[in-house]
Computed example of a mutant assay.
Amino acid sequence: MSSAPFFAFFSAALLLAGACQRNVAVTTPTDPPVTGSVSGTHTPNPTSANTTNLTRNRATTFDTTARPGWLQTRIQNHLTERKQNPPVHVYRYQYNNQVVYFETAPCCDQFSTVYDRKGKVLCHPDGGITGRGDGNCADFIKKRTGEMLVWQDPR
C-alpha cells in the first residue's frame, strides 16, 4: 500500500492549520471565465485578482484604565530587559471575587504569575517542570472571568 495519498492529505491539513492559526483569509475566485466553459477537459485561468488577504482580522487593543503603579513599574522593567519570545502579556481577570492580574511566562518551564490588586503574588497557575504551576490556584484557568488584555510587549 502506498503512503503517498496519506502524506499528501497530511501535508494539506498542516498547511491549512497553519493558515488558520495566523488568521489568514483565503477565498476562491467566483468570477466566470472570460470565454469558454468551466466544464470539459481543460480548466481556464482564473479571472479574478488574488484573493489571499494577509492582514490580521483585528487590531490588539489594551485596557489602560486604572493600571496600578506596581504594574506600571513591572511594564517598564520588561521594556528595559531583553525581548522575550513569546512576548510577555498581562491580563486582568476576576478570580475568587477579586481583581487579579495574570502575567504570562516568557518561555518554557517558567511560571506564569497571578498578582492581586496590590501586586502581591497569589500563585503560579501554570508553568514549571510539570506545566501545572505551583498548585496554589489549580482552578484559576477554569474560574477566571472578564478577561481584559492590559499590556503586551510591543517589541
Score class of each variant (00 low, 15 high):
Y101G: 04
P106G: 06
R132S: 10
K83C: 07
Y101R: 03
R132E: 10
L54W: 06
T27D: 12
P46G: 09
C20Y: 08
E81V: 04
P33D: 04
D63N: 15
V90R: 01
T47M: 11
V88A: 03
Q98N: 08
Q72V: 14
S112F: 00
R155T: 14
K142F: 15
R74D: 04
K142R: 15
P33L: 04
F111I: 05
C123Y: 12
C107R: 08
P125D: 09
V38H: 15
R92V: 02
F62G: 00
W70N: 04
R56K: 08
C137D: 01
F7L: 13
C108T: 02
T28A: 10
T80Y: 04
S3I: 14
L14S: 07
K118V: 01
Y91Q: 03
L79F: 06
V24W: 10
N53R: 12
S37W: 06
N57Q: 13
E103T: 13
R74V: 03
T51R: 09
Y95I: 00
I141Y: 11
Q152S: 06
R144Y: 14
P87K: 06
G119P: 05
L79Y: 09
T61P: 00
T27G: 10
G36I: 03
S3Y: 11
G69E: 14
R67A: 13
V121Q: 12
T145A: 15
D153Q: 11
P154V: 06
F10T: 12
K143Q: 14
Y101W: 08
D116E: 08
T35V: 03
V99M: 01
S2C: 13
D109L: 03
G133L: 00
S3F: 14
N136L: 04
S48P: 04
D153R: 05
N97C: 13
I129S: 05
F9P: 02
V121C: 08
P154Y: 02
Q76R: 08
L71Y: 00
R74F: 06
D153C: 01
T80C: 01
E81K: 13
H89W: 09
K118R: 13
Q76C: 01
G40C: 00
R58D: 10
L79V: 04
D139I: 03
D116W: 07
T28Q: 04
S37T: 13
G128L: 01
R58E: 08
P44Q: 05
D31A: 13
V26L: 14
R92Q: 09
V26G: 12
L16W: 14
P68H: 12
I75C: 05
D31E: 07
T30I: 14
C107K: 09
V34A: 11
G119D: 07
L16P: 04
P68V: 07
A4P: 05
V26C: 11
V88T: 00
G119T: 08
T27K: 07
H42W: 11
Y95C: 02
Q21H: 12
V38R: 15
A13L: 06
M1A: 14
T130F: 14
S39G: 11
T73Y: 10
S48W: 07
V99H: 02
D109H: 06
Q94Y: 09
S37A: 11
T60A: 14
P5H: 07
P44D: 03
V24M: 02
